[in-house]
Design a protein around this nucleic acid. Sequence first.
DNA 1: TCAAACCCTTACGTTTACGTAAGAGTGATA
DNA 2: TATCACTCTTACGTAAACGTAAGGGTTTGA
Lengths: 164, 164
Amino acid sequence: MTNEFSAESLSLLKVGDIARRTGKTVRAIHLYEELGLLNPAVRSKGGFRMYRGDGVKRIEWIQKLQDMGFSLTEIKVFLRVWGESATAPKAMATVREIFTDKLRETRETIARLTRLADELSESLAFLEGCRSCDQSQHQRECGGCGRSGPDHEVPLLVDGIAKR
Amino acid sequence: MTNEFSAESLSLLKVGDIARRTGKTVRAIHLYEELGLLNPAVRSKGGFRMYRGDGVKRIEWIQKLQDMGFSLTEIKVFLRVWGESATAPKAMATVREIFTDKLRETRETIARLTRLADELSESLAFLEGCRSCDQSQHQRECGGCGRSGPDHEVPLLVDGIAKR
DNA sequence: TCAAACCCTTACGTTTACGTAAGAGTGATA
DNA sequence: TATCACTCTTACGTAAACGTAAGGGTTTGA
């Protein structure tokens, strides 16, 4: 057992504890501090960073935003904006704006990926026909086998690699 | 008009022509060559890279794969695998495998993004309630206004920023 | 033949989110 | 008090996909 229990009883965690609980590395947490994303509640007499439990939450929050595609710098702006608007409604309005934008962006990304998935499926369907392709025919001539896909056209994903 | 027409009549394009047609920069095309993704058909007497029309197709193909999340290095592997398998069916089998993996991955990404979009919506719904929040209440106390969301819980996306 | 517009090679710069290492101090435990 | 695991600061390293600049040839059309 480590010293975590005694620290925990004082509800103070060292950087390593935070790291273990969030799956992040110590270095990452240091970085977040450099960027102003998370400061320790206090420092021990010897200079150790001591965090409260909400430090874990903050990091999970950061992780969430990262997953959403925010960069650490954007997250920093996020916090700054928050701190600057004195009233709750005003701050909330800004956050709402950012979230709305990101939601739109996320949906666009989903749409794009969906199209790509369709294209992949299409290409895979086309490639099915190659199973029975004449062994003697080399791939450089692929697409000229006359057995083109459903729409009688070689998908770009396949065509691009075959030629040359 | 540039010299593109005369070159085109010989069906040879200079790197700048390729760049214009694909929206890539000359530097990018140089990079693709360094990585072995696209070689010019020939070099002019003076050393200019001269491409045939299919160079454009190759770059569009690269772009497509990049959109799908392949790195240039992965694309290189892609081409190598293709070149190494002598028969078409064998090559096709490998390509099919790669595509299948990527399709699964893409679908996972879509699922993840969908969850995030849901979370964003949820957070936005919660923030709606803040419109009428008491001005005098500072954001540091947000979440304690008693007017928590539908499930009477502050979403992590909001909670993470509010505390501290 | 001359000039404008291109192109060539070489090579260092950029951004993001950490990784890694060095040298030294700290804290809880035996 | 001796240890051993942890932590501190400082600072250079990394990977991807190009950007950018320098110094100098090449094409082409007037």
